[in-house]
Design a protein around this nucleic acid. Structure first.
Lengths: 166, 166
DNA sequence: AGACTTAATTGGAATAATTCTTGATAAGCT
DNA sequence: AGCTTATCAAGAATTATTCCAATTAAGTCT
């Protein structure tokens, strides 16, 4: 009976509806945090979100940012992404996707699904398990860092150091 | 002489060789930590390893257990597995595999590769990235917890509570 | 074996991300 | 407006992990 249901989905309900749906309130702070995520569609940590939101709402506290991020995550409006034991990052992309963590610059890039094949099809599960979520992540070098490395290793005196944004 | 050495790569070198290969020493503590992992092939946290090793080596410190686990991980003798922001767990299984984190009992189960298809084949990477590692994890219910839930939800008065080991 | 050099272990202090607590504020009814 | 409940802010508390400084153990070289 799987009705059909999304893939793009998730976004059928507006942020407000999602929040209200849980008996919660869309406050200024939650909206500001949400907007900070949606405005620049990257993968900031809670502290980075905090710094962004401070720009327009100087009175907001870090604890509130943590609370808002948790709420937004619970409501399915953003995703929390973790890598090793590094601080959690938050991702506004609700499409099915994986993440690439760049060892060169620390950036996190979205990696989208290429085929219809689901990761579950690749793995052998014990009988009778129930899978509710899956998560795929890669480590390596983003195009910029890969190029920088190729240049410094093989190439000429291509001096350039690698970008670093964290 | 290394007599037999089991299947599939990684294990071509003995633990001692791996350690020595890095100019490090195979100490009692490192062996004890390694044995604790290999003896019971589950996914203990550092503290759980600490408690196990204390049994045979009461003088060992938690800091040492952390150090040993890091060394063993760096040498490729065990894997660190992380889920959300929960304490790191350590896995002695060096085969290609994913993990299932059970929401019912907190247990971690290995999930092995079913086909020849690599997860990378499923994803679309930006041009020119370099992938060095990948990691796949699932959340859901292990067979025991799935059965327990089915029982309590659908079934009769199948009383049983769920196992809980964390 | 003894001396030396360097790595490893310990126990405790220090860190860092996140969560908790408490009192003050703000939202959404009625 | 008044009431009820959710939310916020500030700082304290927690927790996993790392760092530090002093001691001990390994491995090497004579």
């Amino acid at each position: 009976m799987k009705p059909r249901q999304h893939h793009r989905a998730e976004s059928v309900a507006s942020p407000d509806e999602r929040i209200h749906g849980r008996g919660l309130r869309m406050t200024e702070q939650r909206r500001a945090v949400y907007d900070a995520l949606m405005g620049k569609r990257d993968h900031p940590t809670a502290v980075e979100v905090f710094m962004r939101v401070k720009g327009t709402m100087p009175s907001i506290s870090l604890a509130t940012v943590y609370n808002c991020l948790e709420t937004l995550t619970d409501c399915g409006l953003v995703k929390a992404v973790n890598h090793d034991r590094a601080p959690s990052r938050y991702c506004p992309n609700l499409e099915e996707h994986a993440h690439l963590f760049c060892d060169g610059c620390g950036a996190v890039a979205d990696v989208s699904l290429r085929t219809r094949r689901q990761p579950q099809d690749v793995w052998e599960f014990p009988k009778d398990v129930i899978i509710s979520h899956h998560e795929v992540s890669f480590r390596g070098l983003c195009p910029k860092c890969a190029a920088a490395k190729a240049g410094s290793t093989a190439g000429r005196s291509m001096v350039r150091a690698r970008t670093s944004d964290r």
